[in-house]
Design a protein around this nucleic acid. Structure first.
Length: 788
RNA sequence: UGCCCAGUAGCUCAAUUGGCAGAGCGUCCGGCUCUGGACCGGGAGGCUGGUGGUUCGAAUCCACCCUGGGCAACCA
């Protein structure tokens, strides 16, 4: 489905939708869902931005029936050196064209400068920020490296008063660029480089395109962005994967700038994978390079992935939207095949582009059994049979017409089903034609074909039922309109021009633009000039909005038709597929070998005290090396384990639970922060050990303990989780489950044995995890295979 | 030798949070009296990166390893 209305398109599930669903359920933000698209106005938008636009505005549309939704267009204009109003206009134009409306939610970060400043004052007063007077170089030096901690700046401990005074002077313009900066006071030894006292403000004596010379103090992204989101009450702040690290500062700024009561409903940042398209480049600098070096014709060159380029090429906005919804929004980096994009274009254009005939590389054909003056006006349908539309146009057939030069071969290969000497083909919408004579010039080049039509085949069928394999498009020589066709191919010859050692321009495809002088059937004159059409058997085209004139038509190829005959450009051949499979197999084998080689002793990295503990766990308690090392390597965890051991002396099950279950639920917390202590933990393990509860039941109890604490046995009683070991008590439940799922039972008996898991799940659910799993499994098998 | 993220069909992604490994694209075969392309039907394709562990049951939890990517701008 493709329409001009973005809200009519179906949403595609992704993890961000899951998060929003969850927040709506929990009421985290009440019924609000507010997203934003935050470009910096320092360049033109491309298809990668479109993915973000479609995601953010798509959420606004998709949740409109369930929530109070908004999507803000925010210009993140905090760097006066690179930004300009022309870019603002170009971006607004692009978002509009894509079909989205930000209503009255157009914002500029530069409008928030006063608030950024006030928040900074707050941070200074709290002791969370300080003015640093180190040089740019020194700051870098002091920051350390990835494996060496940074060292604090000598200015780090300036008094609040001094900081305040200095910061005011910075704003007042009393210093030169780079003399001072404002930094957050976080942790110079953090393993996360980004947390080593990130810069908040720098001095920049540069006029801002909106604020003029009002400010000489400009905020950094890491400081400004969270505040922009907070100021606008954004709920879900979506950005690309490379901002993953920045989320730490994002959260820090929120926690330290906002009031306590604002924190629960504060904006949160989520990262998704950016769009990487094959055979093109997408970075601003690379695009700019192509334009400045005149390697393409400007930002709107139809070969470029820019919005303006795609627009000029003729790509409909609805096709871009559906493409962006089809590509995955995930956290795994990926490169999307250009074929996917082309498929999305064809899918969109197929039901909307009327068919016409055009010959791009004309070869003249003369019908010897047709009168010179006779013209047969044929009523030809604009639409193929599978499209539910019925509009026709008159197409003139006369003695001389053009066909595609490539549709004729003098000595055709085996599977060639087009025209050759002595062969008969079907002329689209017209007669069967047989080639009888080939005319050449002195160079031997074919200049003309001569032959005859069968007058009894005007409606494309023959009275004797014969049916040629090939169908050719054609255009009457006397009626055809000469025109220029511009065929575009991928800009680069390799899928990853930006990821190679050589400069990316080395890989430019010299044939990315191919200009042809063709002839067009006259009925196109009756179509709107901006109507996208299909030239039959060739592709989708539209008149170039910049250069096409009524007396000199120029058509851009939007996308060619899929071509299974001439060796697919996008699809892979069987051999290529097999090759790819082999390569993958080899990669796996290699990885397997290396991963085995790289194995280390789990106790290797322990310090002396930890090693003693490890020895104790392993040798005296009989815990296996890996688990013993895992616990010994985490002092708090080991303490917890030992305390639990005092309460219930069963080393092995306790170790299993500590490592496999407890560690899994811990995430970033330490055991000390949990609402359950070692005694309760030990009690839980005892209950499982004594088979009072099943592991599944224990899982539920454990979940409750981790969330709210409490007494394990009390929870078991309250939830009635005591394990059911009684065959007669369990059998009815099992029979009920089987009775509720007759289809699955049939499929199981048919051989789909994997369904045993499904039945187990049902039984465990029905009993809230109380059923003894082994018994349940046995009984299920008994019931499912009665005769056995 | 740090920290973070990700590895599921050839490709892009799913998998109701521990319970049937699926979809789209591509590919192959068949159908369609008029596009070699559109449309319809069907097939093949998987050791879920690896090894061990926890569990009645693991793509999912734990440990270690392997592979790829990101992070050390007074850019965003």
């Amino acid at each position: 489905m493709s329409t001009s209305d973005p809200s009519a398109e179906r949403p595609r599930e992704n993890f961000i939708y899951d998060i929003i669903d969850e927040d709506l359920d929990q009421g985290t933000y009440g019924d609000r869902v507010v997203t934003r698209f935050p470009p910096e106005p320092n360049g033109h938008l491309h298809i990668g931005h479109a993915k973000s636009i479609v995601l953010n505005f798509g959420i606004k549309h998709d949740y409109a029936d369930r929530a109070d939704t908004q999507c803000h267009l925010r210009f993140d204009d905090t760097n006066p050196k690179t930004e300009s109003p022309e870019y603002v206009e170009s971006i607004k134009d692009a978002v509009n064209w894509l079909g989205y409306d930000w209503e009255d939610h157009e914002y500029h970060a530069s409008d928030y400068f006063e608030q950024f400043y006030r928040y900074a004052i707050t941070l200074i007063k709290q002791g969370d920020a300080y003015v640093d007077s180190l040089s740019e170089e020194k700051i870098r030096e002091y920051r350390g490296t990835v494996d060496e901690p940074g060292t604090p700046s000598p200015y780090r401990d300036r008094s609040v008063e001094e900081n305040l005074e200095l910061f005011c002077k910075m704003k007042a313009g009393e210093f030169e660029d780079g003399e001072h900066v404002l930094r957050a006071k976080i942790d110079m030894s953090s393993p996360h480089m980004i947390m080593r006292d990130p810069l908040l403000f720098r001095i920049l004596h540069a006029p801002h395109y909106r604020r003029g010379d009002e400010w000489c103090l400009y905020p950094m992204y890491d400081y400004a962005h969270p505040l922009e989101d907070a100021i606008e009450d954004v709920t879900h702040s979506l950005c690309t994967l490379e901002f993953d690290n920045n989320r730490r500062v994002y959260d820090w700024v929120m926690e330290h700038c906002l009031d306590a009561d604002e924190i629960p409903a504060r904006p949160r940042q989520y990262e998704f994978n950016r769009l990487n398209l094959g055979y093109t480049v997408m970075s601003k600098t690379k695009l700019r390079h192509l334009i400045e070096e005149d390697l393409v014709d400007g930002w709107d060159d139809p070969r470029l992935p820019t919005i303006s380029g795609l627009r000029r090429r003729g790509v409909p906005p609805s096709a871009i939207r559906s493409f962006c919804r089809e590509v995955g929004v995930t956290r795994s980096q990926s490169r999307v095949q250009i074929g996917h994009f082309e498929h999305a274009l064809r899918d969109d254009l197929n039901p909307t582009a009327p068919r016409v005939m055009a010959v791009l590389d004309p070869l003249k054909v003369v019908v010897t059994n047709w009168d010179e003056d006779e013209v047969d006006w044929i009523n030809a349908n604009h639409w193929p049979r599978d499209i539910d539309k019925d509009e026709t146009r008159p197409v003139p057939f006369a003695r001389e017409f053009y066909i595609e030069r490539g549709d004729f071969r003098e000595d055709p290969p085996e599977d060639f089903i087009r025209l050759a000497p002595g062969r008969e083909v079907r002329l689209r919408h017209a007669y069967f034609f047989t080639c009888e004579e080939v005319v050449r010039d002195e160079d031997g080049t074919v200049t003309e074909l001569r032959g005859t039509i069968d007058p009894d085949t005007r409606d494309s069928t023959a009275p004797d039922g014969r049916s040629p394999d090939g169908t050719l498009h054609w255009v009457s020589a006397a009626h055809g309109i000469p025109f220029e066709a511009r065929l575009y191919d991928r800009l680069f010859g390799v899928p990853d021009p930006d990821a190679r050692e050589d400069h990316f321009t080395e890989f430019l495809n010299p044939d990315s633009l191919n200009v042809r002088q063709g002839v067009l059937e006259p009925a196109v004159r009756d179509l709107d000039t901006d109507q996208r059409v299909q030239f039959e058997r060739q592709g989708y085209f539209w008149a170039d909005p910049d250069t096409s004139r009524p007396d000199a038509l120029v058509y851009n190829q939007i996308v060619p038709l899929r071509d299974t005959w001439s060796g697919g450009e996008e699809g892979l051949t069987q051999e290529e597929l097999a090759q790819q499979r082999r390569e993958k197999e080899q990669r796996k084998e290699e990885q397997r070998r290396r991963s085995l080689e790289g194995k280390t002793d789990p106790a290797e990295h322990l310090d002396d005290a930890q090693r003693d503990r490890f020895t104790h766990f392993h040798n005296e308690l009989g815990i296996d090396r890996e688990d013993a090392a895992t616990m010994a390597g985490d002092d708090a965890l080991a303490d917890f384990f030992e305390q639990a051991l005092e309460h219930y002396d069963a080393p092995e099950p306790l170790a299993n639970w500590t490592v496999n279950e407890l560690l899994g639920r811990l995430n970033d917390r330490t055991v000390a922060a949990l609402p359950l202590g070692p005694d309760e933990f030990a009690d839980l393990v005892r209950l499982v050990d004594a088979e009072v509860i099943s592991t599944r039941g224990a899982d539920e109890v454990f979940h409750e303990l981790v969330e709210n604490g409490g007494d394990p046995e009390a929870i078991v009683d309250a939830r009635d989780l005591r394990q059911v070991d009684d065959t007669e008590a369990l059998r009815p439940t099992i029979q009920a489950v089987l009775g509720d799922h007759p289809d699955e039972v049939a499929r199981y008996r048919d051989g789909k044995k994997g369904l045993i898991g499904f039945f187990m799940g049902q039984v465990m659910q029905a009993t809230d995890g109380a059923a003894n799993p082994e018994l349940a499994r046995t009984l299920l098998q008994e019931e499912l295979e009665p005769a056995a």
